[in-house]
């Protein structure tokens, strides 16, 4: 599966919508996780789902995401930190 920031952003939006019921229209690239009501545990859940979907390992401990992180920034950070497929 495509592991570019664009593809990861699409997948993040899909997970936030299907798993947590966040309105798809609210989940723009520039929306912050906090604005969407997403906390650090939800982000961990998203990461675990992404690992499965992309067949990769995401080193959560290295991501160091800021509190006001946007959907796009999460996608870009993940794309930078992907390690070899499991």
């Amino acid at each position: 599966m495509d592991r570019t920031p664009d593809a990861i952003e699409v997948k993040i939006k899909e997970i936030l919508n299907t798993e947590f019921g966040i309105d798809a229209e609210q989940i723009t690239a520039e929306a912050t996780m906090r604005d969407l009501g997403v906390d650090s545990m939800h982000v961990v859940y998203v990461m675990l789902d992404l690992e499965k979907a992309l067949d990769v390992k995401i080193p959560l401990e290295e991501l160091n995401l800021p509190k006001q992180v946007t959907v796009r920034a999460v996608a870009e950070t993940i794309a930078q930190h992907l390690v070899a497929p499991k």
Partner: peptide
């Protein structure tokens, strides 16, 4: 409850 709250 909101769906985003339910997992907790």
């Amino acid at each position: 409850f909101k769906r985003i709250e339910l997992p907790y």
